[in-house]
C-alpha cells in the first residue's frame, strides 16, 4: 500500500512537472498566458506558506502568542532589508526555535 502510494504519487508529480516541457505537445503560449504565468510563483508559494503562518490548530491566530506569525513578519522585514535569502531564512528560523 505504501509503495503503491509512493509510485503513484511520484507519477503524478513527475507528469505535472514534465508534461508541458514536451515539445510534441502542440501548445503555444499567448502573451496573455505568459503574463498570467509570471504571477504563478508568488501566488503559489504564498498560498502554501500563509496557512502555516496564520492558522494554528484550525483557527486564525493573529495574537502575539503565535510565534509563526511573529517570525514570519521578522522574515519579511529581513528579506526586504537584506535581500539575502540565506540570512533571512537562517535568522528567522533561529528566532523561531528560540521563542517557539
Amino acid at each position: 500500500m505504501i509503495w503503491l502510494m509512493i509510485f503513484s504519487m511520484a507519477a503524478i508529480v513527475f507528469i505535472s512537472r514534465h508534461l508541458l516541457l514536451e515539445p510534441k505537445l502542440p501548445l503555444r503560449l499567448s502573451k496573455g498566458t505568459q503574463t498570467f504565468l509570471s504571477y504563478s510563483a508568488p501566488a503559489v508559494l504564498t498560498a502554501i506558506f500563509a496557512p502555516i503562518v496564520f492558522v494554528q490548530e484550525g483557527t486564525l491566530d493573529l495574537s502575539l502568542e503565535n510565534s509563526y506569525l511573529i517570525c514570519a513578519v521578522v522574515a519579511t522585514v529581513l528579506a526586504l532589508v537584506t535581500r539575502n535569502t540565506l540570512l533571512t531564512t537562517v535568522l528567522s528560523m533561529g528566532l523561531f526555535f528560540v521563542i517557539h
Binding site: I52, A79, T89
Partner: peptide, 11 residues
C-alpha cells in the same frame, strides 16, 4: 516554520 521562512525569502 522552515517552509514558511523559505517561501517568504523566495516571495
Amino acid at each position: 516554520f522552515a517552509i514558511a521562512a523559505t517561501f517568504i525569502a523566495l516571495v
